[in-house]
Simulated scan of single mutants.
Amino acid sequence: MAARVLALSGIPWHHELVWESLVWGAVAASSLLLGTLLAIARRWPPRLLGVVLGFGAGALIASVSLDLVAGGYQEAGALAVAAGLSLGALAYYGANRAVDRWTARSGGNAAGAPLALGALLDGIPEQAVLGIGLAAGGGVSVALLVAIFVSNLPESIGSSADMLAAGRRRNRVIGLWMLVTAVCAAATVAGFAVADVIGAAAQAGVNGFAAGALLVMLTNSMIPEAREKAGNLSGLAAVVGFAVAAALMLLD
Rank of each mutant, 00 (worst) to 15 (best):
A59P: 01
A59H: 03
L250Y: 06
Q203K: 13
W19E: 04
S141R: 07
E16F: 09
A59M: 01
A143N: 02
M217V: 00
N96H: 13
G107A: 06
G56E: 02
N96K: 07
G158E: 02
A210P: 14
G137M: 03
V23L: 15
M178W: 04
R172K: 13
A62H: 01
L121K: 10
L120M: 10
W24H: 04
A98C: 06
G133I: 01
D162R: 14
E16L: 11
R168D: 11
G54C: 07
G158Q: 05
L8R: 15
S31Y: 00
W13F: 11
P46C: 04
R43V: 07
V142N: 04
L117S: 02
A210I: 05
V140F: 15
A190T: 02
L144I: 10
V197H: 10
A243P: 05
G205L: 08
A113H: 12
A187L: 07
G88Q: 10
L90S: 09
L250A: 13
L218Y: 00
A28F: 00
V52S: 15
L120A: 13
R105Q: 13
L214R: 07
L53I: 06
S151Y: 04
F149Y: 03
L176C: 03
R101L: 14
T36E: 07
W13P: 09
T181F: 00
L144P: 14
V99H: 06
N109H: 12
S151V: 07
V240M: 05
V183L: 15
V244A: 02
A211P: 10
L68K: 14
L134V: 03
S86G: 10
G235Q: 13
A193V: 00
A70Q: 14
P46R: 06
Y73D: 08
L236C: 09
A83G: 10
W13H: 10
V189R: 11
A2N: 13
M178P: 12
V216I: 12
T219P: 05
G118E: 01
A200F: 02
V99Q: 09
A41Y: 11
S106R: 15
A57L: 06
V51L: 15
A119C: 05
L85Q: 07
Q127E: 05
A161F: 05
N96C: 08
E75M: 10
A83D: 07
G50N: 04
G235A: 13
A29M: 00
V189H: 05
Y73V: 04
G10A: 06
D122Q: 14
G84I: 08
G71E: 01
Q127P: 08
R4T: 04
A245S: 15
D67N: 12
I174L: 15
I11A: 09
S9Y: 04
A104L: 14
L32G: 05
A82P: 10
I11Q: 12
A195N: 08
V183T: 06
A237M: 06
W19V: 00
A83Q: 12
N96W: 05
A70S: 14
G231V: 02
V23R: 14
V64D: 14
L176T: 05
L34K: 02
N207E: 11
A147M: 06
C184F: 00
